[in-house]
């Protein structure tokens, strides 16, 4: 490990505390891109046979038509799945999930929701997530797992029959897939809004500190 020693240059310089390690930042932005591609191409696929009485605006649906939307969806899925798997493995292995997201107590969530709604929620130490953040971040990981499982089941309902059974049947897996997408969109709106309200959190996700 001889080559890893600190050079004279660094002595005396105390670098700011790392809030987001580099693996979190890289995976976060890959995930952001993959999610947006999956959502927009998913809208195109939804429009071919809507579950509800509306369609997504054509200009936002990726792929031009159903065939193109499917090609985008089944290409971006690799990005989402490989990155997502790597994130889950690293998150558990490094203990980040346990350290950052737990515990989540009802009283803690209630207290912080109240504080947030009255704009009294402090953001002095970005390395510690408040209870609202913990709940949202843990929740969106669960939604991410669900949307991938229901999507895989719909993609290969014969080969991955047990995945379809997990949700009951094929049509139910479709609804689960849709509502997970809706949850991710809602998360995205809140997440981006809050990041803009606390710009230093956005900076931490880009340069780490």
């Amino acid at each position: 490990m001889a080559s890893l020693t600190v050079t004279d240059e660094q002595v005396g310089v105390t670098p700011a505390k790392v809030i987001q390690p580099v693996w979190v930042r890289v995976m976060h932005w890959i995930n952001a891109l993959a999610m947006i591609l999956m959502i927009l191409s998913g809208w195109q696929i939804y429009n071919a046979s809507p579950l509800f009485g509306f369609r997504f605006p054509r200009e936002y649906a990726l792929g031009g038509w159903l065939g193109g939307g499917l090609l985008w969806h089944f290409a971006a899925m690799w990005l989402l799945m490989i990155n997502g798997l790597a994130y889950l493995v690293t998150g558990f292995a490094t203990g980040r999930f346990r350290k950052k997201l737990l515990p989540i107590t009802p009283s803690g969530v209630l207290h912080d929701v109240r504080a947030a709604l009255t704009f009294k929620l402090g953001h002095d130490d970005l390395t510690v997530y408040n209870y609202v953040q913990r709940l949202l971040y843990a929740g969106i990981i669960v939604v991410g797992v669900l949307i991938v499982l229901s999507g895989l089941g719909m993609w290969k309902p014969v080969q991955l029959y047990y995945l379809v059974m997990l949700f009951g049947d094929y049509p139910t897996a479709r609804y689960v897939h849709f509502f997970c997408m809706a949850a991710i969109c809602a998360f995205l709106v809140i997440h981006v809004l809050l990041a803009l309200l606390v710009p230093k959190s956005l900076r931490a996700m880009i340069i780490g500190r």
Partner: peptide, 10 residues
């Protein structure tokens, strides 16, 4: 058996 359309309905 279940007929599944490329559009998503079945």
């Amino acid at each position: 058996t279940r007929h599944i359309c490329v559009e998503g309905w079945s």
